[in-house]
């Protein structure tokens, strides 16, 4: 069942088109940087972007920081929002359920396929960025932490892997919102846009001083904290809070999705 869902996801042209688009923006940025040699001043622009002109191997982190605020959440919301509602809209949901596939199993398989998509997308973006960065951008091994000290290549590799894990978990929060909405509506568009509306509201409230009391609980609050993994020593506080917060969102929303989907009349 899970294998079939993964196969379905991997055989869909849309999956690859999305991943291609996710790679397009960082690659364009890399080309522009290489051609103009105009990096943002340190401390401005997306994280790590000022460093990549000298050390291209840091570009995977810059690429992730570029797609994290908007591109990646959109892709995840679209894929996760489509997972149940898309089957409902195309009418295949009823045939899956009378096949029979248990509703809980179906939901779990969909969730795993969404997680697989997020991991696949993040890893492909990181690898592409590494290749692009090595080819186009600077080759002086800088390996500088955000704090100014030097990291060994091993340290950079470990921390990059941790960053990928952290970003995946953050995106899982988005996926949980979209998946929950996907079990409520039969329209994949509504589910994806609903999840995005939630994220946009969250980002907006983060800029508002009056919403300070709410801010620690907003899903996007700690997304960019993965940068803290590259401080020396690692600044864990926000990362751990981010992990905890996403875990709560994921558990609560997936629970709600399960409760709703297993007791719902499938009339699509």
């Amino acid at each position: 069942m899970i294998a079939v869902e993964l196969r379905k996801m991997l055989r869909r042209p849309r999956t690859w088109a999305t991943i291609l688009l996710l790679n397009a923006l960082p690659t364009l940025v890399a080309v522009l940087l290489a051609v103009t040699d105009l990096g943002p001043r340190p401390g401005t622009g997306p994280a790590f972007l000022s460093a990549v002109l000298s050390d291209g191997t840091l570009f995977p982190l810059a690429a992730l920081a570029i797609i994290l605020p908007l591109f990646l959440p959109i892709a995840v919301a679209v894929i996760a929002g489509d997972s149940v509602a898309g089957e409902a809209q195309s009418g295949t949901l009823r045939y899956l359920l009378v096949r029979p596939v248990g509703r809980t199993r179906l939901l779990v398989a969909k969730l795993i396929s969404v997680i697989a998509f997020v991991l696949l997308a993040v890893v492909i973006v990181a690898v592409t960025a590494y290749v692009v960065g090595s080819l186009l951008l600077g080759d002086q091994p800088l390996a500088a932490s955000v704090s100014g000290t030097t990291l060994t290549p091993e340290q950079v590799a470990v921390r990059t892997a941790l960053a990928i894990g952290y970003i995946t978990l953050s995106m899982l929060g988005v996926a949980a919102i979209a998946l929950f909405l996907s079990t409520i509506t039969d329209s994949p568009l509504a589910a994806a846009l609903g999840a995005l509306a939630f994220l946009i509201a969250s980002s907006l409230l983060l800029t508002l001083d009056a919403a300070e009391a709410l801010q620690p609980y907003l899903p996007t609050r700690y997304w960019l904290s993965f940068v803290d993994l590259f401080r020396d020593p690692i600044f864990w506080r926000d990362i751990l809070r981010g992990v905890g917060l996403q875990a709560v969102y994921v558990v609560v929303l997936l629970g709600a999705a399960w409760a709703n989907f297993t007791t719902k009349d499938v009339t699509s």
Partner: peptide, 28 residues
């Protein structure tokens, strides 16, 4: 039980044969 409920449905980008294969692999 084999069922046809309110019109057929299949994944449009796959062939008829692939659709049957997926559905068959999906459950017991």
């Amino acid at each position: 039980v084999g069922a046809l409920v309110e019109g057929p449905a299949a994944y449009g980008h796959l062939s008829g044969r692939a659709n049957l294969g997926l559905l068959d692999a999906m459950g017991k």
